[in-house]
């Protein structure tokens, strides 16, 4: 199978759907000839034209609200919010509008829209262009939240997101855009709500999202050398959350570390920890649940400090070893 990048996988998945379904269109800032801030839509305006690859004014609220409106007429908008930090500007349309439509229409309203948006730090983009705010939207009933960690997952999950009749927030990680994996050329679907065990192991479970999946895998490799067998679980979607896979893995290993890039306080890791603590897996725990997340500070511009605020491979190794000792 050929290898392509995460950005290419998103573009390919999007383009394939657009060729099949003329109701799908993309709207966002600089997505035309510029190709999007991270080049994801590069070349698409040439194929699909300016009506389906629609450049917008800098109006995140309006991009999102217009997507809700267009979706009500039966269109299937995919909007690109240039940086996921800007979701704050679109919040009313996501939280009070898109998320509520189906419910408030007594089950008869449909807003089949996908919000694609790059998140995360690691590009030196500082406090207002580097955040991981997925817990904000995961809190809202009516929204689905996806966080692919590989090119393969990105393509399959994006298809599921585009076919979902409910609004889906699709977080792409900026640093992962250039990462490569084997991706089939044909379309395929990864259902929302199915976690993926990225590596099997027996001693400890690491539940990691987005870029932290890769850091966890790196840590697992090192820990393997030290005689610790690590299982790495990637939930892939936060809403719906595959609780079953998480609970099964923790029940098996008896130890768990949850790692995300978002600020630890109020982060989605707390929800995962809660799910475990409320489940039968609790009885299998040989050590307290550990969470790793960013420090509660804005993302620094300085690259050394930027790295220092979020969990690194060494932090994960240390946490695993402490958890093993605490058993």
């Amino acid at each position: 199978m050929r290898e392509i990048t995460y950005a290419e996988a998103v573009r390919e998945g999007l383009s394939q759907r657009m060729r099949e379904d003329s109701d799908v269109f993309v709207l966002g800032e600089d997505i035309g000839v510029y190709g999007g801030a991270f080049g994801v839509t590069r070349g698409m305006i040439e194929e699909f034209g300016p009506e389906r690859i629609r450049n917008t004014p800098i109006s995140e609220a309006a991009i999102t609200g217009a997507a809700v409106g267009a979706a009500l007429t039966g269109m299937k908008p995919v909007l690109e919010l240039q940086f996921s930090d800007f979701i704050t500007i679109a919040m009313d349309q996501l939280v009070n509008q898109a998320a509520k439509v189906r419910y408030m229409y007594g089950g008869k309203g449909h807003v089949p829209m996908v919000v694609r948006t790059p998140s995360g730090s690691g590009t030196g983009a500082a406090a207002q262009h580097s955040q991981s705010l997925e817990a904000w939207v995961a809190h809202i009933p009516g929204l689905k939240v996806v966080q692919p960690s590989t090119a393969y997952d990105a393509k399959g999950l994006l298809k599921a997101a585009m076919e979902d009749p409910n609004p889906v927030i699709f977080y792409e990680h900026k640093v992962l855009y250039k990462s490569k994996s084997d991706v089939p050329e044909e379309e395929y679907t990864i259902p929302l709500g199915k976690a993926d065990v990225k590596k099997e192991g027996t001693d400890v479970t690491i539940i990691a999202t987005a870029i932290m999946v890769h850091k966890a895998l790196e840590a697992a490799e090192e820990l393997e050398k030290r005689g610790i067998s690590v299982e790495v679980v990637d939930p892939r979607t936060l809403v719906p959350l595959d609780e079953e896979t998480i609970i099964a893995s923790v029940s098996k290993t008896g130890r768990v570390i949850i790692v995300h890039e978002a600020v630890k306080r109020g982060g989605f890791g707390g929800e995962i920890a809660g799910v475990i603590a409320e489940s039968e897996a609790f009885d299998y725990l040989d050590a307290p649940i550990r969470r790793l997340g960013a420090l509660p500070i804005p993302v620094p511009y300085n690259p050394v400090l930027e790295k220092a605020m979020i969990p690194q491979v060494e932090d994960i190794i240390k946490a695993v070893e402490e958890t093993m000792r605490g058993a």
């Binding site: 309006a62 217009a66 267009a70 979706a71 009500l72 349309q93 408030m104 089950g107 008869k108 309203g109």
Partner: peptide, 30 residues
């Protein structure tokens, strides 16, 4: 009360002041 009849092109009365205005641009675009 929110179940619009088929073919009736009505959006639910908006409660958040102004939110319907940008949706209108989207409906019109659609």
């Amino acid at each position: 009360g929110g179940q619009m009849a088929e073919g009736l092109n009505l959006v639910m009365p908006q409660i958040i002041i102004g939110a319907q205005i940008i949706q209108t641009a989207g409906v019109a675009l659609g």
